[in-house]
Design a protein around this nucleic acid. Structure first.
Lengths: 220, 220
DNA sequence: GATCGTCTCCCCCGTGCGGGGGAGGCTCGT
DNA sequence: ACGAGCCTCCCCCGCACGGGGGAGACGATC
């Protein structure tokens, strides 16, 4: 059974673009569209999509309120990916607080969009580190890196994965981690891959950055 | 002309070990030994070594005072590498403050020791990131990561190298950095290699870690 | 004029890394 | 008894990465 997606965006062009990108995938099916947040709930009830791709900035009911409403009023609610144009969008952070499972930039490459939908459909959460960095920067020294912290909380790393990430933040190679944990390097590679996927990181360096930004490890 | 080294350690066993490791290199020559800090200055004056490998904890005159004395009283002073048994050795930090060019753990692998001697002989400074991590940890939240910070100060990165390091801490690949700086990827590779060498990092991940530990970039 | 440091780019080369799969054993909860 | 989640290990594969060299252009310094 394919992953079913409901698109919610006030711009028809964006909806069309998302539909084109997602429909190109054999395992993804766009089952409906809505132009504002107010229309989301009845549609979710009727269509029961696996994933809702939702703009944060919309008339009537924005993505934050719509996210809250869906999670509050629907049982077995869909996964929610919020979409935004800006990297520095405080709405995004609020939407994540409201329970969204990930966020996407409109200018993300099609492959990233597809990847994100599949990931959240599988129950994973995701944020793109490059965007997280921007987000975190916005909240400055006082607010702290709440956004990045949220990534890690949502990443739901297993104990082993967390341990591997910790060793990654100490600068260890896969072979060294394997030696330290007394397992095979292939095992470490598996854990590392899982960590990268869950953190939305492209490589171990980005993973370590996210770890620092999130407070998973503290410098000094 | 080979790199000439003076060994200063109160334990004959350690001196013998260092001599064995260093003499095995065709380009390194151990020109003398001393058992305590007080004997260092006349020996330095007479032998004019390129590098002094000096224990921090010694009778009569410890490595810190000996380092200060050499730098204060000898012109064209040698490079000084302090040696310690413990990763959490506050003496080490003091020695670095006193002007030492790097430090070494006694349990470091021979290749690391050789590498360190060659590096400081060439005028580079070096600390091993893994040790830095330990050092930094000791100084806790209040004292901050002074040791790691010292690495970066001593690393004397050029403007371009610092810029490249900054982009590395944003998670960019060599190709992305090249695009950002509008230069070739080979150029970026050169800068990255220089950064790795100066920071004593094995790969970009370790470099990023050092950058965070040193406060070169601040999380959040 | 010569030297030094920096920035730029080039070559070759080995390998660690990460993506894409899969698979078996284990514990735990139902 | 069964599935879910986790940990473990395996395969193949492409490529970015990093080490080792070298070299030309430019400005500053002496």
């Amino acid at each position: 059974m394919p992953v079913t997606v409901l698109l919610v965006d006030d711009e028809p062009l964006v909806r069309a673009g998302l539909r084109a990108v997602l429909e190109a995938q054999p395992d993804i099916e766009v089952v409906g569209e809505a132009a504002d947040g107010a229309a989301v709930i009845p549609l979710v009830r009727r269509l029961r999509p696996d994933v809702v791709a939702m703009d944060v900035r919309m008339p009537l009911l924005d993505g934050i309120e719509a996210t809250r409403a869906v999670l509050r009023t629907v049982d077995a609610p869909p996964k929610i990916v919020v979409i935004t144009t800006f990297e520095n969008d405080e709405y995004v952070y609020e939407a994540l607080r409201a329970g969204a499972d990930g966020f996407l930039l409109k200018r993300a490459r099609p492959a990233e969009i597809v990847h994100a939908v599949r990931l959240v459909a599988e129950g994973e959460s995701l944020l793109f580190p490059a965007s997280v960095r921007q987000l975190a920067a916005q909240y400055g020294d006082d607010g702290g890196n709440r956004a990045a912290r949220a990534v890690l909380e949502r990443a739901r790393l297993t104990d082993r994965e967390a341990e591997v990430l910790r060793l990654m933040t100490r600068g260890l190679s896969n072979a060294e981690i394997a030696a330290r944990l007394v397992v095979g390097t292939e095992t470490v590679k598996s854990h590392v891959s899982a960590v990268l996927a869950k953190l939305g990181a492209r490589d171990r360096t980005q993973a370590v950055i996210t770890a620092y930004e999130s407070g998973f490890v503290a410098p000094g």
